[in-house]
Design a protein around this nucleic acid. Sequence first.
DNA 1: AACGTGAGTTCGGATTTTGAACGGAGATCG
DNA 2: CGATCTCCGTTCAAAATCCGAACTCACGTT
Lengths: 166, 166
Amino acid sequence: MIVRQQEAQPMKWDELAQEPCSVARSLAVIGDRWTLMILRDAFLGVRRFETFQARLGISRSIVTERLNLLVAEGVLQRRPYQDRPVRHEYRLTEKGLDLHPVIMAIVDWGDRHYAGEAGPPILRRHKGCGCDFHAVQVCSECGEPVTARDVEARPGPGAAGLRSPT
Amino acid sequence: MIVRQQEAQPMKWDELAQEPCSVARSLAVIGDRWTLMILRDAFLGVRRFETFQARLGISRSIVTERLNLLVAEGVLQRRPYQDRPVRHEYRLTEKGLDLHPVIMAIVDWGDRHYAGEAGPPILRRHKGCGCDFHAVQVCSECGEPVTARDVEARPGPGAAGLRSPT
DNA sequence: AACGTGAGTTCGGATTTTGAACGGAGATCG
DNA sequence: CGATCTCCGTTCAAAATCCGAACTCACGTT
């Protein structure tokens, strides 16, 4: 793959990825200020460099860097959508699509706490049932909704060197 | 008059909060590199300045800044847990607890794509049913699991000035 | 008195981000 | 044919942020 990255970048993030914590490891990839915004747009169907850049209004170099990182991590796939002038588009891979719950959870929190009087800026319809909906998180085992208070965490098998929270 | 052609304004972080987008508005609060790590710890029961700082290993000033922001946004509540040397603790508010799905979605993605052979670093038990579980996102209306492909987005009531994705 | 602790604050240097300009390959216009 | 336009980047200096380390303060402990 060899995505020319500035490897001389001892970014704190490298260490994040080593942490025995799924949050840390995920954030090493998507925890950037703009990366989640890019993903938001990707889930809305944006595919082109120019569109990402124009919609976010950020520096082109940042867009380049973030897209490259996401491609390197297998979240986006870069592929030509035309030759002649060869142009590429950035599409979500399966791994990228798996991030949908993250975006939806963020959307839901924003809708709940920051939507103005008018209501949420975007409505989402579930094709399955045809209704406008919001995301609800449930337990994979019993199907009941899960809140923070319903959860008990403890070290798991991959917990080498995990620091106790207390 | 609908003239909303992006004047390519820089969109600083503070301006993010003004965007007609729940993702942007949420990220203006929690979209920072370390803020989500702080929240992760908060959900694991961390309450004290020193503990956050030690676990994250980041600059004290950053911890101060992030905690203050989260308090200002009503995600954390700062309150004394002793006088004499007056000491404070930071606790999740209801609004903060509402972020649980965000953390869980991130955990889930990390568990799925970055857990090593050993398995996830942390296991979570659902007190309701007693099982180890992972978070699943379902439609609030029909209760069926939702994936990215099942969703159709369109402008909602609070969509003033929303840029079309295309 | 000497030392330890929790919770910050300050400060100078290291990173990041940004705006603006530049490049290049093909397409389109006149 | 030359000029201009589009898309997708890259480069570079300046500005904004971030960071580590040291410092402060107000207690407690020995």
